[in-house]
Design a protein around this nucleic acid. Sequence first.
RNA 1: GCCCCUGUAGCUCAGCGGUCAGAGCGGGUGCCUUCUAAGCACAAGGUCGCAGGUUCGAAUCCUGCCAGGGGUACCA
Length: 559
Amino acid sequence: MIRNQIAEHVRQAIAAAQAAGALPAFDVPAIEISRPKDPTKGDYATSIALQCARAARMAPLAIGQAIVQHMAPADFIGAVEVAAPGFINFRLSGRWLSGLVATIEAANGRYGDINLGRGQTCQVEFISANPTGPLHMGSARNAVLGDTLANIMVAAGYVVQREYYVNDAGTQMRTFAETLYRRYLQQFGQDAPLESHHYQGVYMVDLAREIVAEHGDHFLAMPAEETIAALSDIGLTKILASIRASAEKLRVRFDRWYSERSLYEPGGTFEFVLGKLREAGVMAVRDGAEWLLTSRFGSDRDEVVIRSSGQPGYYASDIAYHYDKFVLRGFDRVINVWAVDHQNQARRMPYLMAALGLDPARLTIVLYDLVRLYRDGQEVKLSKRSGDIITVDEVVDEVGADAVRFLLLTRSNQAVMDFDLNLAVAQNDENPVYYVQYGHARMAGILRKAAERGFPPEQWKHGDLQLLGHARELALLRKMLDLEEVIEHAALTCAPHNLAFYALDLARIFHEFYRDCPVISGEQDDPALACARLRLVAATKAVFARVLGLMGVNAPDSM
RNA sequence: GCCCCUGUAGCUCAGCGGUCAGAGCGGGUGCCUUCUAAGCACAAGGUCGCAGGUUCGAAUCCUGCCAGGGGUACCA
């Protein structure tokens, strides 16, 4: 990354200045290179002179001058300036910048890849919605965040596994089965009213109807408990199939669907981990329940693992599941994407990790806020219980996966998102996804037209990049140069929305270029420039395709 | 009560310690015989919730307050 090269260059300049006596000896802090907000200041800047002023007992400006005077020339540096109150501003050379096109070409569609992860394994667990009904829009946000984050981690050099944790154990599953049982009986005219805690949604009626169609009255003759158990399995299979289909509509696929219930098989993970924790002496029986003593690891409370009823609590699953992730399967890192209503649980996970003897830093919980759906200015309420739900399928069918994915990525994770169905479906310039896709389509159009007019790729692929020097061309190059840093930042902060805003920026800069720099309409005047610009356009197209690809959004060649 | 998140242009939101506060949309004015006008240009629009503090420097960090949302179970 060029930023690191500049930092190293500055470090050497300081050492040289100190060796020459232009600067006194002092410990040099880590040199941070930032991007000035104001592009007229330069491409990169460092405040190192300001930071060293006290240690060096010199005025920041004088320090800056001394550093710059002892800086070796480098091909990537176009200009260096010291600016008040003590910044050193760098401008990249046009020659070096235009060479970025060749770098992008050589990357073969993978420009932007970095080696932050160094091949470590990273599991991203996301959606993991209770398998008791169709996916709603909150889960869609989870799906898009998790899937995009997984893509980002791959680009950042991790080996990634995508997992859906199926909550097929516990009370919500029991409630689901009871509901299904009653809906099944109702299909045969029996009086089996739902209670308030049951799932009221009409999809449960549809499910019961489907089961009647496939199995008839077969279950009526069986004892209730047996029927409930059977319906539980059948219903779970069907719901999971529908969740899988909904996820695929959003272009989300999992490497593994992990069953919570499997943790509790005899001799399974839960038993094993519980034994280990008891052995380690971090379990205690109190009030008839068995607790994990997380207070020993910094928590303000202990957690119930086995309830006084003898049933494991939800913390039990977390313990076994995360032991499985880190110890049995050996992931170096794990990212869980959870909705904010799990914030309390999220806060306790580090203590659980510590109790398991694992470094809490290996687990990252990404919390995201609610999605509020609006249609015609009115909020559309979501509730699985009441049955008044807007499903992912309905929204994707209405607005398309591209718009859903892009819009869900235009908000930072921890911000409540108002999802405007009218905006999403709008096939016009109000919808930012088209602004970006249109940029890609225009590039494809240029390349297509170029081929028609006697400029096929073999004609321009060796075009002279040194001819690129127009302000719009350089602006485009600078933006493309940012991609590695954007991916790094997105990976470090688990913030996929950075990609959406990057794509929007890149599109704007491309559209400006498009207007001011005709690529092939002026080729009769300067075919060499046309060739250079065609290379630039092809590289830009590749960058657009890459960013949109990371977001799971299509990059159309025409619109 | 305590904890977490959010409060930035008319609207929806980026930016989260640096050198004149940004984008998209909406509203105003221009630009299509020339690579797709789903575009571009120009102008307009902001006490970065409020008050203190830290710092050479704060929208960004700290404290307090105000407003909105979420969380605080032997539910998941």
